[in-house]
Amino acid sequence: MSLFRRKKDLGLGKERIIVSEGSSRFGSHGYTRLRDNIIYLNSDGNRKVIQVESAMEKEGKTSVTANLAVSLGLTDKKVVVVDLDFRRPRLHRVFKLAKEKGIAEYMRDSLSREELIKHTQYKNVDLITRGAEIYNPALILVSDKFKDLIFSLKAEYDFILLDCAPVLQVSDYIHISKVSDGALFLVAYGRTTRAQVADAVKELRKNDISIIGTLFTMYDKKKDARYGYGYGNDYGKYYDSAYGDTPAAIEETNESDGATEEQADK
């Protein structure tokens, strides 16, 4: 379980890349750890397509997906990030690109594969956006064309990261799991309830989706020190650390309330 220190935000909605070469920026340690774990898990090459999931919306999936991609790119891994949150696509914003000309157009045959894949300004990181609005997500996700796309990307990239819609809101994750090698499950610390996490994990397991790792986002040290967590909007107090010196949080994560660490092959 990795922990993310997130610089104190004034609120949500400001997903951004905090990882950079030689970075010691707050929070980037967490990504280094995550990246190394992901690389390790994929040492046999059969964990390269990862669906990034969470129970609810706004738990940090887009931020994590984007920053993990950049982090992997810095180790010379070729990565493509795909925005599969069709109802609320946000990945393009983090990379400051337009969302137009994406999956929607590609599926309608009005865009070529070359045009579909956008190059970002980050080393080794490409992006596939949603494009125009998609009214029938399930139809797209189960289609051969979509499956073929992901399959063909596997030949070209070391990692394919899929930014997905929340598990408890839509059932897209079921279809996506048919093309992914496993799920990275995020939990927004102090915000998502145990019941929500339990329900989401139950759903993933019910559909035989391998949870290759779990992590907390929006960790708040201040909140941690007090017993119990609130459901409010108090996010990420900056916490500078080398890894390991967060005993309280680690204790918290060891409680199996649905969020578990499962890094085995399934």
């Binding site: 004034l10 609120g11 909605g13």
Partner: peptide, 10 residues
């Protein structure tokens, strides 16, 4: 809501 208004401004 507030969050959205804030994001719009940002």
């Amino acid at each position: 809501d507030m969050e959205m208004a804030k994001e719009i401004k940002e």
